[in-house]
Every structure is written in structure tokens, then in C-alpha cells.
Design a protein around this nucleic acid. Sequence first.
RNA 1: GGGGAGGUGACGGAGCGGUUGAACGUGCUCGUCUCGAAAACGAGUAAGGCCUGAAACCUUCGAGAGUUCGAAUCUCUCCCUCCCCGCCA
Length: 421
Amino acid sequence: MLDIRLIREQPAFVRNGMMRRGDDPAQVDAVLAADERRRELLHEVEALKATRNAVSKEIGKMKEATAREAKIAEMRQLGDRITELDAQTSAVEAEFEQLMLLLPNLPDERVPVGTSEAENIVLRTEGTPRSFDFAPKPHWELGEALGIIDFERGVKLAGSRFFVLKGAGSRLQRALINWMIDVHVGQGYSEITPPFVVKEAMLVGTGNLPKFGDNLFRIEGADLTLIPTAEVPVTNLYREEILEPGSLPIDHVAYTPCWRNEQMSGGRDVRGIKRVYQFDKVEMVKFVEPQTSYAALMTLIDNAEDICRALQIPYRLLQLCTADLGTAVMKYDLEMWAPGVAEWLEVSSCGNFGDYQARRAGIRYRPAHGARPEYVHTLNGSGLALPRVIIAILENYQEADGSIVVPEVLRPYMGGIKSIG
RNA sequence: GGGGAGGUGACGGAGCGGUUGAACGUGCUCGUCUCGAAAACGAGUAAGGCCUGAAACCUUCGAGAGUUCGAAUCUCUCCCUCCCCGCCA
């Protein structure tokens, strides 16, 4: 959510930010109109309430019955008028809220303008893709042959885009989760295990709702939704709270499964485990003071890159253009090279959300004792998303005989084994 | 799931229809005192809205709805916490 004061005072600035993203700046005018009506009604009804409060106080002290009855009758009428205006006010206020929730975040000035993800910028590429003296296989062939990924039975259990990990495959995933969490804890993050379902308000808090609800899995008969990412419960941890001076920054890491109903992806990426309805992820979330959020973003990216580096898998860093920011003010993606499918796979997305989520979720801090509360800045980034890391490991570490070398850093987490198959 | 007790500010805890945005205590902040600290004493200490700012004003005592001229206080619904019984990984 944006600051209504900013919209009132610098509408041109806000419209410009929206245009940079490719959004319709007319939304700003709708918000301003609603704000105007809202304030008019507020002035009117508040004046009436002030009168009622004052007169009611007098009535309490009045002794003389006739005069008292006259005042009460007068206030009864005024009360009816207030009820009327209150109803109007809350209707306008609800409309105003809705419009505010639909406004996107404004991109940081440093973010390159673009009209689609094709205009994201590759900032650098790390590591050298391995040269194979045989044709590298895609992970679905490797995984099936090794008996560590079972696609058919995943479909049998839950339908398409679900899979089953088995044996060393399960263990590899478990090793990755434990190792990644340990690395991030070593970087200063404290671990959280949140609920894997949340109330709708949490999704509004992070910005998934009301606009991006298409790919959520909702639970029938309850106000609960399966989380699409740990970002949702972890960012909302401190919702409606005022953090005491000295409590920032707060860095959390959380492992959770994630559910995404990827209906819009149609027939894309139907093979393998690149795009599935349920996947596991380790996520980092930061709460920081506003003036430090850009530096925190750089740290966040570096923390995620540490995972890529340690696994010794080639990857590249992309700066996302204004069209691909989602609700962030600035965002970077990490992509690992997968030689079997010959493509770069997004394994992490690191974003600074400014105070956009903090305003929606009411996450504030007190800069100093006695000072007025201010909104924190929130950030989050995957560290990392598992199926794609598994793809990258299988495809980069495959041998001619179809076996997989276990990356060095994972061996202590896998009972010391050096290879799968 | 059945029975009982509750939800008030950072915390404890009053209030149970009218000067209560909320007594009192604790905590916290600042000051006095001190070489310093403790103690003691003094002052301050909710959030949001409206507003150029301040004041005033409006809203908020789990949430929502209602009764009333007026509700933290009365009624209804929901949520949550605690205790007892049942069930259960």
C-alpha cells in the first residue's frame, strides 16, 4: 500500500511510477476522488458526533425533566442522521481501501524500465558450464532411471504436476533443506517454522491479494489458504505490532512447502519438476529500518548466492525491469544453469518491498524511545527453491553411466555418500 | 466434542450506563540527588483519523452487530485464552 499523503501531495510522481511499470495511472485519480469524498463525509459526521458527545454529557447533569426530554429528543434525531452518515462513510471508506489495495508499489528510480521480462538485465554470470563428453540428460530421465523421482505415482496420488521423491532423492532434498538452513543461520538468520496455511488477511498483507489470487490453493470451508511461499507467514509474523527501539534488523529463515496452482502456465514445462503445484523452499525474510533496505537487499542477494557458489553450479544474476517487479520496489533473480534441459532456471528471487507490505500488514517500529512509530521495510528472497536446485544438481553432476556425484557440501548431510546410483 | 472461567494500555490490575482514553501498581524515558550506581523524589509515557503544524475534534477497552441522548460497562453472534471431562497423531 502506498502512503495516501504521497498520492495527495505528489500525484504526478505516483502516476509516473505507475507508468514506468506499465500500469494505468488513472487508478490514482480514482483513489484521489474516493479520498476526497471520504474526507468530506468525515468532516460532516465528526462535527455531528462532537455535538452529540457534548450534549450527551450535559444531559447527564440535567435535573429539569422537560428540558432534559427536549434535548434527548433532539439528540435522537441527530443520532439518526449520524447513523445515516456513518453508513455512507464506511461504504466510501471500504471503496477507498479497495482502491488503495489495488495500487501497485512504485519502482525504485534505479530500476531499468521495461515492458516485459525479456527486458530483464543479466548483470553477471558466475561459474563455467561444464563440458560433457556425452549428451547430458534431462533430470526426468535421470531421476526416473535412478528410481529417485516417481512421476506416475505422483500423478496417481494428486494429479498432474505432483511428483514423488524416493530414496536418495528424498534424502537429497532433505539434505539440501538442512544444509541451506544451516548456512543461513550461520549468516545471522534465525529459524522459523510457521503454519503452512494462513488466513486471507495475511495474503493481503504481503500483496498476493486482492490482485494475484489466481494461483492460490484455498481450503474449502475455512478461511485458510495453503501458502504459496514462506514469505506470507513470516512477513506477517509482526503484523499489527510496533517493534521496540533496537529490535531491527530482524532476519528470519524458514523452510516450508509452497503450493501454487499454476493454471496460467497451460502446457508449459509439463515435463519434470520445474513447474509443479507443490514444492519445498527455504526462504529468507528481513525487517529493516527504511534507510538500510537497499544495503540489506545487497546482503540478501549475497546470502542466496553463497548457496549457488557452494554447490559449484553455474548461475547468473538478473536485475528485473519495472515490468517484472511484482510488488517489490527492486528485485533480482538468481538462475542456475541446467545442461540437461539447456536452460537457466530461476532458483531465487530477492526483493526489497519498501514499506508497501509493512503498510498493508501494519508492521511498525519505534526509531527511538518515545518517538512516533514508523513503517519498517521488508525484504525476502529464496535461499533456495528446491525442485530446481535438484534439477540443477542432477543435470550438472551427472556421469556418463547415469549416476550423480553428490556435491561436496552436501555429503555430510547424506551420510557421507559420494554418489547416487 | 461436552462443562466452567475469562479476554481492559508494554505488563499486573480497577472500573460494570454519564467529567474513564481509561484509577492504582510495575516497567520504560527524562530530570534531581551521587565520584558512579542503587534507592528516593519529580515529570513524562497508546494508536489511528482529520489537519500546513499545534490545539481542538472524531475513533479505538478481543472482533462484528444491536439497545441508548450517551457503552469498557447492557444484549446477540463470532474469535481467542485458561481449567475439568471425552477423543486423538
